[in-house]
Amino acid sequence: MQVGDKYQHEFEVSSEIYNGFLGIFNDRNPLHTEKSFANAKGFKDVVMHGNILNGFVSYFVGELLPTKDVMIIQQEIKFHSPVFLADTLSFSATQSAIFESVNAVEFKFEFINKTDNRKVAKGKLLIGLI
């Protein structure tokens, strides 16, 4: 794993993921569950939970990196635009640093919504190589 290494993946915010998130975490805020409420707040439809994206980040760390010997040490994410059901997100992550002293690597990542090409979120990850 070297600085500059880039990883890409596409994630669809499927009804299975949305309903699974609702069922597990029970966040039924009307922004996420009532179209009329979301419309009144200026959104075209119910807004997907932002933390679904953190699940995708977890998949990246656990499944897409070339080693399974990993553990998230620190994670930051900033949300820039809403995501709606059935949107497909293009995820990319680039290794931005390596810290040999503590066996850790840093990634910068972002999600782009393929529906409208808007940046959905970006963030940073510090991952320990255990």
């Binding site: 040490i73 810290f99 002293s101 503590v102 510090l126 320990g128």
Partner: peptide, 12 residues
């Protein structure tokens, strides 16, 4: 131990 990693990273 986990904060130690963040401390060293921040110092570097």
């Amino acid at each position: 131990s986990l904060n130690h990693i963040q401390l060293v990273v921040s110092i570097e």
